[in-house]
Design a protein around this nucleic acid. Structure first.
Lengths: 308, 308
DNA sequence: GTCATTACCTGACTAAGGTCAGGGAATGAC
DNA sequence: GTCATTCCCTGACCTTAGTCAGGTAATGAC
């Protein structure tokens, strides 16, 4: 958000609204949370119990990493849960330094209980409302959740050989293979070699959510030719967050800063959402400017030059 | 919510949605809350500082009651704030057992700082979003907040002489006085005497939010005549929560349980929102059935008899 | 075999948030 | 004037949620 936009948001009362929301929600949900989920078990233990999960054994170090807790603290929490017979801790068969943990029968019951309480909390919020209000509350909640999730997605430049970038490119190829009538074989496509998506000849963006890569987009910046967008992909679980749009405008901005006046891209007719995005974002369809065998549509957009 | 409705809500995935919301949003907001507002001052002290408020002196016992904290604990917190020169505690002039507390200049500054941090938190949530997403986020937040507030409003039968009932009736009269072209003088109106809004001849509902009365509605149940709704009012600050509709249907339900087959009411043309509510709730306009001088419209609704 | 590293455990410690049982001063009811 | 009550303060105590500095056993690199 620029300073300009901050001011704008304040004038709209948006900041005020968000603050009110934080107060109301944090307090109401918080209080109920304590009321319903408290009592049974200290929060730390409950979190751990939850994270261990119903089935299978887990390495203690993984659980610890996911919760971001101190090793000593987790050790103590595990001792407490073990004492109550809720978890079983055993050495890892392959590496006897590592310890694994799984829920016992009693542990699964206790976890189910937490589940029930969580349901009860949700029900208590819905209970006083009539059917119409409930519908509106849940859709508004979904919207808030979606947008707040979107707001913690980070986008950064990564080398196309970075594991997260590779993961995205593989997922992208796998998905096209799935979707295209003709299948998709990267060997037949005008696949940019990694060098083209790396400074100074281009760049590659990767979006992360909670540390996981969830989307990517590549930009070719050939000398003396229009910029070209390649490999714009958002993982299925992160769609609907406006992430593709964000990646697209980030690329456009960087292309403009680089001095490009025109940005082009090609796409397949099976990628309907992408095609819609391009049209909505000011791209106009143009005749084929390359011989990409998998492309059905070619687009371009004129960029407003950066002045400073 | 009836058992039937609980099942329905579960099928809709509404409970699941609310749970996801609680996890994602409450946690994210909570964590950020701690991150931004933590640091400076322990949460307990910050809460107290906030509750004391910018201006005026407050009885310690009131502050304590509003926060629902232990007397000893508050005493200690106040000592800490006093030590840092943020509050001044003085005996109450009228009753020297009671102590009063007010913010010092430094205290007001510290509180403003909490304010700024709260703004910073809000801004950090809005920052990664574009203007359209920000608009959608804030309106969804407003909706969630509104409906969560609505869900903590309680409605109960109160004697019309109860202070909260009296407060509502006075506010109702004052508001009509303001709104009606002709003004409003209860002495000229067919004011039901309190006995008519009290068992067995009727009843009076009062809605509370955080312990404050925020709305009311009266029902006359004359023997051998249709039930009659009187004095339906919702305080300005609590409008838009669907409270009037809730009070109305609660009265209808009680009238039906009492055996009434018809419920009637009269209203003034200046009360546009109310008139709309009646029409939307299945009331049909009928000729005047009384000589209430302030009424322009008369409505009735046939009730479905209660079978059990 | 040596040595650094990894994964975990333990003991010592801290801060926050809170409860509980008195005790003293002021007040109100009688 | 007596006595119960109210309001507050204090000291003692508790749990939770951590952090930090070692220490130990197992492992992998050389």
């Amino acid at each position: 958000m620029t300073d300009e936009q901050v001011k704008q948001a304040e004038q709209n009362g948006q900041v005020e609204q968000v603050r009110r929301f934080n107060r109301t929600v944090a307090e109401r949900v918080g209080v109920l949370h304590d009321h319903y989920l408290g009592g049974a078990r200290p929060y730390g233990q409950a979190r751990l119990l939850w994270q261990i999960g119903d089935e299978g054994t887990h390495d203690v170090r993984d659980v610890r990493a996911r919760l971001g807790l101190d090793s000593g603290y987790v050790s103590r929490l595990l001792r407490a849960l073990e004492r109550d017979g809720l978890v079983a801790v055993e050495p890892h068969p392959g590496d006897r330094r590592v310890r694994t943990v799984r829920l016992t029968e009693a542990g699964r019951e206790e976890r189910a209980l937490l589940d029930d309480r969580s349901d009860a909390l949700a029900t208590s919020l819905l209970a006083p409302l009539d059917a119409r209000q409930r519908d509106r509350l849940t859709s508004a909640m979904a919207e808030v959740e979606r947008l707040l999730t979107a707001s913690v997605v980070s986008v950064e430049v990564l080398d196309p050989d970075h594991p997260d970038a590779v993961y995205c490119l593989r997922s992208y190829a796998a998905e096209l293979q799935e979707i295209f009538d003709s299948g998709f074989d990267p060997a037949h496509s005008r696949l940019p070699d990694p060098g083209e998506l790396r400074a100074p000849r281009g760049l590659f963006l990767v979006a992360h959510l909670h540390g996981e890569p969830v989307g990517c987009a590549g930009l070719k910046l050939p000398a003396g030719a229009p910029a070209e967008i390649k490999r714009l992909w958002v993982c299925p679980g992160a769609r609907g967050l406006g992430l593709a749009r964000r990646l697209l405008s980030e690329l456009e901005e960087r292309a403009a800063r680089h001095g490009s006046e025109l940005v082009r891209l090609d796409t397949n007719k099976a990628l309907k959402a992408a095609t819609r995005l391009y049209r909505n974002s000011g791209y106009t369809e143009v005749p084929a400017f390359n011989d990409e065998p998998y492309a059905h549509h070619w687009f371009e957009k004129r960029l407003t030059p950066v002045t400073r």
